[in-house]
Simulated scan of single mutants.
Amino acid sequence: MGAERMHPPRYWRMRAEEFRTKADNCEYRETRDVLRKVAQNYDELARRAARICTVESLDELRGEPANSKPV
């Protein structure tokens, strides 16, 4: 199970924004760059989580269990 399944997309977006804010307030360039990279990683987790939610919603509309996998 990937980390993106642990929380909804909104959670990961909020974390990304939190790290962007920390980066904006950081005095040191190298640290700022690392914090921005962390924010980008959280943005990617949010995108993945959104895709998972979309697929699970489509599965439910089709009447398939959310965790079923085609054989």
Rank of each mutant, 00 (worst) to 15 (best):
A49F: 03
R20H: 08
E30P: 03
A66Y: 03
A23R: 05
E27I: 06
A66D: 06
V71F: 12
K37T: 06
G2H: 12
I52M: 11
A46K: 02
E44M: 07
R32W: 06
H7N: 09
E60K: 15
C53Q: 14
N25P: 03
E27D: 09
L45V: 02
L61I: 10
Y42C: 07
L35D: 07
E44G: 04
Y42P: 01
P9N: 06
R51P: 03
A49M: 01
D33S: 05
K22E: 01
N41S: 07
R47G: 08
A3R: 12
A39F: 03
E17N: 09
K37S: 14
V34H: 08
D59K: 15
P8S: 09
R62Q: 11
E17V: 00
R10W: 05
R29T: 08
A46D: 00
W12N: 04
R62L: 06
E44A: 11
N41F: 02
K22D: 01
R20D: 09
A50P: 00
R13T: 06
F19H: 08
E30T: 08
D33I: 04
Y42G: 00
L61A: 10
P9F: 00
G63F: 05
P70D: 11
R47E: 10
A16V: 02
V71T: 11
R20W: 05
H7Q: 10
L35M: 12
P8G: 13
H7I: 01
A16W: 06
V34C: 01
E18T: 01
E56N: 07
Y11L: 03
R20N: 09
T31Q: 13
T31I: 10
